[in-house]
């Protein structure tokens, strides 16, 4: 058991995959930015390499970078993988950026089966299509739900199933934007 620091992990990955970049968040949180096409290869390397041995997928999530105050402004969906090695007890964050319009990322469920559920959730809430996922269905919202709610440009529905979302006469100041109607 030998826990590696982020720099050592980054060096090991970059030696094999030169296209992988080190990305530093505004507060110094380090992550590896992986090109979309090579995420499965990188994931396989991270999991099987004896020095790294990332056997656990701790979290898989995403966030919409629209409206995030960065220079230059970004407009894509950033998928975040939090990997943890129970063998060596070290952690690393991977990031994959997918364009908003053609939002598809290869699935890593072949490496960690835990990704099966995480990816369904990200598909449901962000609309990231994970190519190769065996059953990419909505998980949280009903099957006939429109849109992907956690995107920043999402409009709240005014009605669902013929039932108004708000109570009669209910009105909120500065409520989230809703589609279809004055609500």
């Amino acid at each position: 058991m030998k826990a590696l620091a982020f720099d050592a992990i980054a060096t090991a990955v970059q030696a094999r995959f030169p296209a992988v970049l080190v990305q530093k968040a505004d507060n110094g949180q380090m992550a590896l930015r992986v090109p979309k096409a090579s995420i499965v290869d990188v994931a396989h390397f991270l999991r099987t390499d004896a020095q790294l041995a990332f056997d656990g997928l701790s979290d898989l999530t995403a966030f919409d970078t629209l409206k995030y105050p960065s220079t230059p402004p970004q407009d894509d969906i950033c998928v975040v993988y939090v990997l943890f090695s129970y063998t060596h007890r070290h952690k690393v964050l991977l990031k994959v950026h997918a364009e908003r319009a053609a939002c598809d990322v290869p699935t890593v469920s072949g490496e960690w089966p835990a990704a099966l559920y995480f990816e369904r959730e990200v598909w449901d809430l962000f609309g990231v299509r994970f190519v190769g996922h065996p059953s990419l269905r909505r998980i949280m919202t009903p099957d006939d739900w429109e849109g992907h709610p956690l995107r920043k440009d999402y409009l709240y529905p005014a009605t669902y199933n013929g039932v108004a979302h708000l109570r009669d006469g209910q009105h909120f100041e500065a409520a989230p934007p809703r589609s279809g109607g004055p609500l």
Binding site: P157, V163, A164, R167, P176
Partner: peptide, 20 residues
């Protein structure tokens, strides 16, 4: 009763079961 703490910001919560 009315959606409670979820009535304003939630997209998926029904605001009051008395609609059904």
């Amino acid at each position: 009763n009315s959606g409670g703490p979820f009535s304003k910001w939630s997209y998926s919560v029904l605001n009051g079961i008395d609609k059904y």
